[in-house]
């Protein structure tokens, strides 16, 4: 059995990617199962989706704790302590990262001890679809890695997307983008033999849960708020960029920012709190003087602490 886990952010298409892969596998004659897991349904929030592909009926359910293959659709998730996209990855497993870095660079950057493949699918998505939605692209990459056919991938993209979108042109673009990614991922490196070890995990022991007083065991949080520690700045695909020559300090951007991420400097000019700006670009849209433009984020490291 192949066990794949997709990690992305709400709106990027991790759930649909796992559906595309599951459908392609089904069309190729395999048993397939796909399953997304998300908490609050919110753009930018981490989403994981699991796909299982097997020759026999699948007797597993839920999140894949020990994947053979992990597809990281958003590079910034690799640094998210709550998501931990590589957790449980089997020895000999494969990580596919959406990045413009080379596999060697990504391995060094994120200290990954596994087979790493990279492909900058956000750029491909923007070029081929005109938007940073990566579902069919990630599905195409994954389909290639597990050895599914181009025909089934094409059919799967059509099947899955036709229930979501009605724009025929966009659907065709998605088919083209999925096939592009299918063929773009370096085939030599994909010939890694997967050791599908079913029990490599250290045994977990069942314990007796001790009683604790309600001061501990009631679901109340005593610690002070930690929202400022959640740097939502790494959700951005584009960042607002400033050109102060045109700025009249009208403050429309300050008023329109839904997250209060535009602050005022000593000279009375607005500036962005890049640690928390989610990149919605409402400020760019609303600015009457073209002070604000948008620039694509490329590397996570440039975002954090900028």
């Amino acid at each position: 059995m192949y066990r794949l886990r997709f990690h992305g952010r709400g709106g990027q298409g991790a759930r649909v990617a796992s559906k595309v892969l599951g459908t392609a596998a089904f069309l190729d004659g395999y048993y397939a199962q796909d399953f997304p897991l998300y908490g609050a349904e919110r753009r930018g929030a981490p989403v994981a989706a699991s796909t299982r592909i097997a020759e026999d009926p699948i007797m597993e359910r839920g999140v894949i704790p020990e994947p053979d293959i992990v597809i990281v659709m958003d590079e910034t998730l690799l640094q998210d302590p709550l998501t931990m996209p590589l957790s449980g990855l089997k020895p000999g497993g494969i990580v596919i990262i959406n990045t413009t870095n080379s596999p060697a660079e990504a391995k060094a950057e994120y200290k990954i001890n596994a087979n790493v493949l990279t492909l900058g699918i956000t750029k491909i998505g923007l070029d081929m679809l005109g938007m940073p939605i990566l579902s069919t692209l990630a599905g195409g990459v994954a389909a290639r890695i597990v050895g599914l056919s181009e025909d089934s991938l094409t059919e799967a993209v059509k099947k899955v997307l036709s229930s979501i979108i009605t724009d025929k042109k966009l659907l065709d673009k998605n088919v083209a983008a999925a096939l592009y990614c299918f063929n773009a991922i370096t085939p030599i490196e994909t010939k890694i033999e997967l050791k599908t070890i079913d029990t490599n995990k250290k045994k977990s022991t069942v314990i007796s849960l001790p009683f604790e007083p309600a001061a501990v065991s009631s679901p109340a949080i005593n610690a002070t708020g930690n929202t400022p520690l959640r740097m939502t700045g790494n959700w951005r695909v584009f960042r607002p960029a400033w050109n102060y020559e045109a700025c009249t300090r009208c403050m429309i951007c300050v008023a329109r920012c839904p997250d209060g991420c535009i602050l005022i400097n000593e000279d009375g000019y607005p500036y962005t709190d890049y640690d928390n700006c989610k990149g919605c670009l409402i400020c760019v849209e609303e600015c009457p003087t073209n002070t604000l433009g948008k620039v694509m984020e490329v590397h996570a490291k440039k975002v954090i602490g900028n």
Partner: peptide
């Protein structure tokens, strides 16, 4: 919920 509601299978 989730384990069937959102899980796709044939």
């Amino acid at each position: 919920g989730f384990y069937l509601s959102f899980t796709r299978e044939p």
